[in-house]
Protein backbone atom coordinates (compact mmCIF):
# COMPACT_ATOMS: atom_id res chain seq x y z
CA UNK A 1 0.00 0.00 0.00
CA UNK A 2 3.07 2.23 -0.04
CA UNK A 3 2.35 5.65 -1.48
CA UNK A 4 -1.34 5.03 -1.46
CA UNK A 5 -3.47 7.27 0.70
CA UNK A 6 -5.54 5.53 3.37
CA UNK A 7 -9.30 5.82 2.86
CA UNK A 8 -10.79 8.49 5.09
CA UNK A 9 -13.65 7.76 7.41
CA UNK A 10 -16.17 10.16 8.91
CA UNK A 11 -18.81 9.29 11.51
CA UNK A 12 -21.89 11.50 11.84
CA UNK A 13 -24.51 11.60 14.54
CA UNK A 14 -28.14 12.65 14.13
CA UNK A 15 -31.01 11.88 16.55
CA UNK A 16 -29.88 8.66 18.20
CA UNK A 17 -28.58 6.98 21.32
CA UNK A 18 -24.94 6.82 20.20
CA UNK A 19 -25.02 3.01 20.23
CA UNK A 20 -24.17 2.65 16.53
CA UNK A 21 -20.93 4.58 16.77
CA UNK A 22 -20.18 2.86 20.05
CA UNK A 23 -20.38 -0.37 18.06
CA UNK A 24 -17.20 0.73 16.29
CA UNK A 25 -15.48 1.27 19.64
CA UNK A 26 -16.77 -2.10 20.81
CA UNK A 27 -14.50 -3.73 18.23
CA UNK A 28 -11.92 -3.83 21.03
CA UNK A 29 -9.74 -6.47 19.39
CA UNK A 30 -9.88 -4.92 15.95
CA UNK A 31 -9.95 -1.17 16.58
CA UNK A 32 -6.22 -0.55 16.24
CA UNK A 33 -6.04 -2.70 13.09
CA UNK A 34 -8.97 -0.79 11.62
CA UNK A 35 -7.16 2.47 12.42
CA UNK A 36 -4.10 1.12 10.61
CA UNK A 37 -6.10 0.61 7.41
CA UNK A 38 -8.47 3.55 7.58
CA UNK A 39 -7.78 7.18 8.40
CA UNK A 40 -10.22 8.21 11.11
CA UNK A 41 -10.68 11.67 9.70
CA UNK A 42 -13.82 12.92 11.42
CA UNK A 43 -15.11 10.97 14.39
CA UNK A 44 -15.75 13.51 17.17
CA UNK A 45 -16.49 10.95 19.85
CA UNK A 46 -13.05 9.41 19.37
CA UNK A 47 -10.77 12.28 18.48
CA UNK A 48 -10.63 16.07 18.69
CA UNK A 49 -8.55 16.09 15.50
CA UNK A 50 -11.13 16.77 12.82
CA UNK A 51 -9.95 16.72 9.22
CA UNK A 52 -11.82 18.53 6.52
CA UNK A 53 -13.69 16.52 3.89
CA UNK A 54 -14.24 15.06 1.41
CA UNK A 55 -14.37 11.62 2.97
CA UNK A 56 -14.25 8.24 1.30
CA UNK A 57 -16.69 6.63 3.70
CA UNK A 58 -19.30 8.27 5.89
CA UNK A 59 -21.11 6.33 8.56
CA UNK A 60 -24.35 8.03 9.50
CA UNK A 61 -26.11 7.23 12.75
CA UNK A 62 -29.49 8.68 13.75
CA UNK A 63 -32.66 9.96 12.17
CA UNK A 64 -33.61 13.37 10.85
CA UNK A 65 -35.81 15.17 13.39
CA UNK A 66 -35.08 18.90 13.22
CA UNK A 67 -34.86 21.53 10.46
CA UNK A 68 -31.14 21.86 11.20
CA UNK A 69 -30.57 18.13 10.77
CA UNK A 70 -32.50 18.12 7.51
CA UNK A 71 -30.03 20.69 6.22
CA UNK A 72 -26.92 19.14 7.73
CA UNK A 73 -27.51 15.72 6.15
CA UNK A 74 -27.14 17.32 2.70
CA UNK A 75 -23.75 18.73 3.67
CA UNK A 76 -22.72 15.26 4.84
CA UNK A 77 -23.79 13.79 1.50
CA UNK A 78 -21.85 16.39 -0.46
CA UNK A 79 -18.64 15.61 1.41
CA UNK A 80 -18.93 11.80 1.16
CA UNK A 81 -18.10 9.30 -1.55
CA UNK A 82 -19.80 6.26 0.06
CA UNK A 83 -22.48 6.99 2.58
CA UNK A 84 -23.70 4.21 4.83
CA UNK A 85 -26.78 4.66 7.01
CA UNK A 86 -26.33 2.53 10.11
CA UNK A 87 -28.92 1.38 12.63
CA UNK A 88 -32.66 1.60 13.13
CA UNK A 89 -32.79 5.40 13.43
CA UNK A 90 -30.88 6.09 10.22
CA UNK A 91 -32.68 3.38 8.25
CA UNK A 92 -36.24 3.77 9.54
CA UNK A 93 -36.53 6.79 11.83
CA UNK A 94 -35.95 4.81 15.05
CA UNK A 95 -38.00 4.70 18.21
CA UNK A 96 -38.38 8.46 18.07
CA UNK A 97 -40.44 7.92 14.89
CA UNK A 98 -43.26 6.71 17.13
CA UNK A 99 -44.10 10.41 17.23
CA UNK A 100 -44.99 10.13 13.55
CA UNK A 101 -48.17 8.33 14.51
CA UNK A 102 -49.19 11.22 16.80
CA UNK A 103 -49.21 14.99 16.91
CA UNK A 104 -45.69 16.18 17.70
CA UNK A 105 -46.84 19.36 19.43
CA UNK A 106 -48.63 17.29 21.99
CA UNK A 107 -45.38 15.41 22.56
CA UNK A 108 -43.33 18.57 23.00
CA UNK A 109 -45.67 20.21 25.45
CA UNK A 110 -45.76 17.03 27.47
CA UNK A 111 -42.01 16.95 27.81
CA UNK A 112 -41.00 20.59 27.96
CA UNK A 113 -42.41 23.39 30.04
CA UNK A 114 -41.60 26.02 27.41
CA UNK A 115 -42.32 24.35 24.08
CA UNK A 116 -41.39 27.49 22.13
CA UNK A 117 -37.69 26.75 22.81
CA UNK A 118 -37.87 23.41 21.05
CA UNK A 119 -37.58 23.08 17.33
CA UNK A 120 -38.64 19.73 16.02
CA UNK A 121 -39.99 18.43 12.75
CA UNK A 122 -43.35 16.69 12.70
CA UNK A 123 -41.72 13.45 11.78
CA UNK A 124 -38.56 11.53 12.52
CA UNK A 125 -37.44 10.14 9.19
CA UNK A 126 -34.73 7.86 7.84
CA UNK A 127 -31.73 9.31 6.05
CA UNK A 128 -32.85 7.95 2.67
CA UNK A 129 -35.90 10.22 2.74
CA UNK A 130 -33.50 13.15 2.41
CA UNK A 131 -30.48 12.07 0.41
CA UNK A 132 -29.14 9.19 -1.66
CA UNK A 133 -27.79 6.43 0.58
CA UNK A 134 -25.26 3.93 -0.77
CA UNK A 135 -25.91 1.21 1.77
CA UNK A 136 -28.12 0.65 4.80
CA UNK A 137 -27.03 -1.57 7.65
CA UNK A 138 -29.90 -2.58 9.90
CA UNK A 139 -29.85 -3.37 13.59
CA UNK A 140 -30.46 -1.65 16.93
CA UNK A 141 -27.60 -1.89 17.63
CA UNK A 142 -25.93 -3.10 14.45
CA UNK A 143 -23.83 -6.25 14.57
CA UNK A 144 -20.18 -5.19 14.89
CA UNK A 145 -18.96 -7.90 12.50
CA UNK A 146 -21.46 -6.76 9.89
CA UNK A 147 -20.28 -3.21 10.42
CA UNK A 148 -16.66 -4.25 9.86
CA UNK A 149 -17.75 -6.16 6.75
CA UNK A 150 -19.37 -3.00 5.41
CA UNK A 151 -16.20 -0.96 6.05
CA UNK A 152 -14.08 -3.62 4.41
CA UNK A 153 -16.39 -3.80 1.40
CA UNK A 154 -16.30 0.00 0.99
CA UNK A 155 -12.52 0.04 1.06
CA UNK A 156 -12.27 -2.76 -1.45
CA UNK A 157 -14.99 -1.47 -3.75
CA UNK A 158 -17.30 -4.46 -3.45
CA UNK A 159 -20.84 -4.98 -2.28
CA UNK A 160 -21.14 -5.76 1.43
CA UNK A 161 -22.16 -9.36 2.13
CA UNK A 162 -24.98 -8.92 4.62
CA UNK A 163 -27.60 -11.66 4.84
CA UNK A 164 -31.17 -10.53 4.29
CA UNK A 165 -33.17 -13.60 5.17
CA UNK A 166 -35.43 -14.06 8.18
CA UNK A 167 -34.14 -14.51 11.70
CA UNK A 168 -36.56 -17.44 11.98
CA UNK A 169 -34.46 -19.44 9.54
CA UNK A 170 -31.26 -19.00 11.56
CA UNK A 171 -33.16 -19.90 14.71
CA UNK A 172 -34.13 -23.23 13.13
CA UNK A 173 -30.56 -23.76 11.97
CA UNK A 174 -29.33 -23.26 15.50
CA UNK A 175 -31.82 -25.84 16.73
CA UNK A 176 -33.51 -23.48 19.17
CA UNK A 177 -36.96 -24.59 20.32
CA UNK A 178 -39.51 -22.24 18.74
CA UNK A 179 -40.84 -19.94 21.47
CA UNK A 180 -44.02 -19.31 19.53
CA UNK A 181 -44.87 -22.95 18.84
CA UNK A 182 -43.71 -24.32 22.19
CA UNK A 183 -44.71 -21.51 24.55
CA UNK A 184 -47.20 -19.42 22.62
CA UNK A 185 -44.88 -16.40 22.98
CA UNK A 186 -45.23 -13.83 20.22
CA UNK A 187 -42.06 -13.62 18.13
CA UNK A 188 -41.17 -11.27 15.29
CA UNK A 189 -38.54 -13.70 13.97
CA UNK A 190 -40.45 -14.71 10.83
CA UNK A 191 -40.45 -11.12 9.48
CA UNK A 192 -37.18 -9.85 10.95
CA UNK A 193 -33.86 -9.66 9.16
CA UNK A 194 -31.22 -11.90 10.65
CA UNK A 195 -27.93 -10.54 11.99
CA UNK A 196 -28.25 -10.26 15.77
CA UNK A 197 -27.20 -13.86 16.34
CA UNK A 198 -30.70 -15.04 17.29
CA UNK A 199 -30.27 -13.64 20.77
CA UNK A 200 -33.82 -13.36 22.09
CA UNK A 201 -35.03 -16.89 21.30
CA UNK A 202 -31.72 -18.18 22.73
CA UNK A 203 -32.70 -16.39 25.94
CA UNK A 204 -36.20 -17.89 25.73
CA UNK A 205 -38.06 -14.80 24.72
CA UNK A 206 -39.65 -13.68 21.48
CA UNK A 207 -37.81 -11.50 18.98
CA UNK A 208 -38.90 -7.85 19.10
CA UNK A 209 -37.41 -7.02 15.73
CA UNK A 210 -34.55 -4.74 16.68
CA UNK A 211 -33.03 -5.67 13.28
CA UNK A 212 -36.10 -4.52 11.38
CA UNK A 213 -37.98 -6.03 8.48
CA UNK A 214 -36.36 -8.61 6.22
CA UNK A 215 -36.72 -8.30 2.48
CA UNK A 216 -40.43 -8.75 1.54
CA UNK A 217 -41.74 -9.87 4.93
CA UNK A 218 -45.16 -11.45 5.20
CA UNK A 219 -46.34 -9.31 8.09
CA UNK A 220 -50.02 -9.98 7.49
CA UNK A 221 -49.60 -13.71 8.01
CA UNK A 222 -47.58 -13.22 11.19
CA UNK A 223 -50.07 -10.71 12.58
CA UNK A 224 -52.84 -13.22 11.95
CA UNK A 225 -50.85 -15.85 13.84
CA UNK A 226 -50.53 -13.40 16.73
CA UNK A 227 -54.31 -13.09 16.65
CA UNK A 228 -54.63 -16.86 16.85
CA UNK A 229 -52.38 -16.83 19.93
CA UNK A 230 -55.09 -14.72 21.51
CA UNK A 231 -53.32 -11.37 21.29
CA UNK A 232 -55.70 -8.40 21.12
CA UNK A 233 -55.22 -6.03 18.18
CA UNK A 234 -53.70 -3.30 20.41
CA UNK A 235 -50.91 -5.69 21.36
CA UNK A 236 -50.32 -6.63 17.72
CA UNK A 237 -50.04 -2.94 16.86
CA UNK A 238 -47.41 -2.53 19.59
CA UNK A 239 -45.42 -5.53 18.32
CA UNK A 240 -44.98 -3.76 14.98
CA UNK A 241 -44.33 -0.35 16.55
CA UNK A 242 -40.90 -0.46 18.10
CA UNK A 243 -37.57 0.75 16.71
CA UNK A 244 -38.59 -0.19 13.15
CA UNK A 245 -42.18 0.95 13.55
CA UNK A 246 -41.86 3.53 10.79
CA UNK A 247 -40.35 1.14 8.23
CA UNK A 248 -42.75 0.74 5.37
CA UNK A 249 -43.62 -2.90 5.98
CA UNK A 250 -44.22 -2.57 9.71
CA UNK A 251 -46.03 0.73 9.40
CA UNK A 252 -48.46 -0.70 6.87
CA UNK A 253 -49.20 -3.65 9.13
CA UNK A 254 -49.61 -1.66 12.33
CA UNK A 255 -51.89 0.84 10.61
CA UNK A 256 -54.05 -1.95 9.21
CA UNK A 257 -54.34 -3.59 12.63
CA UNK A 258 -54.99 -0.26 14.30
CA UNK A 259 -58.04 0.20 12.07
CA UNK A 260 -59.33 -3.10 13.47
CA UNK A 261 -59.03 -1.79 17.02
CA UNK A 262 -61.10 1.23 16.06
CA UNK A 263 -63.61 -0.70 13.96
Amino acid sequence: MAGKRKPRLAVWKFASCDGCQLTILDCEDELLSIAAEIEIANFPEVSSAIMKGPYDISIVEGSITTPDEAERIHRVRRSSRFLVAVGACASSGGLQALRNFKDVNEFISFVYATPAYIEALNKSTPVRDHIRVDFELQGCPPNKYQLMEVLSACINGRKPAVAQHALCLDCKRKGIVCVMVANGTSCMGPVTQTGCGVICPSYRRGCYSCFGPMETPNTDSLASWFGRLGMPSEDIVREFRTMYGWSEAFRRESEAREKETKA
Binding site: A15, C17, G19, R99, K102, R238
Partner: peptide, 28 residues
Protein backbone atom coordinates in the same frame (compact mmCIF):
# COMPACT_ATOMS: atom_id res chain seq x y z
CA UNK B 1 -28.98 17.07 20.73
CA UNK B 2 -32.55 16.89 19.46
CA UNK B 3 -35.17 15.67 21.94
CA UNK B 4 -36.51 12.19 21.30
CA UNK B 5 -39.64 12.32 23.48
CA UNK B 6 -39.27 9.00 25.25
CA UNK B 7 -41.53 9.94 28.12
CA UNK B 8 -44.29 10.73 25.67
CA UNK B 9 -44.27 7.57 23.62
CA UNK B 10 -43.86 5.35 26.68
CA UNK B 11 -47.43 6.23 27.55
CA UNK B 12 -49.68 3.42 26.48
CA UNK B 13 -46.88 0.84 26.22
CA UNK B 14 -46.87 -2.36 28.27
CA UNK B 15 -44.70 -2.41 31.41
CA UNK B 16 -42.83 -5.39 29.98
CA UNK B 17 -41.62 -3.30 27.04
CA UNK B 18 -40.17 -0.51 29.14
CA UNK B 19 -36.69 -2.01 29.77
CA UNK B 20 -36.22 -2.64 26.02
CA UNK B 21 -37.48 0.80 25.03
CA UNK B 22 -35.69 2.92 27.62
CA UNK B 23 -32.39 1.11 26.90
CA UNK B 24 -32.47 2.99 23.58
CA UNK B 25 -32.03 6.27 25.37
CA UNK B 26 -28.33 5.53 25.70
CA UNK B 27 -26.03 3.16 23.84
CA UNK B 28 -23.31 3.49 26.48
Amino acid sequence: EPPRFFESFLRGRRFSEVPDLTARICGI
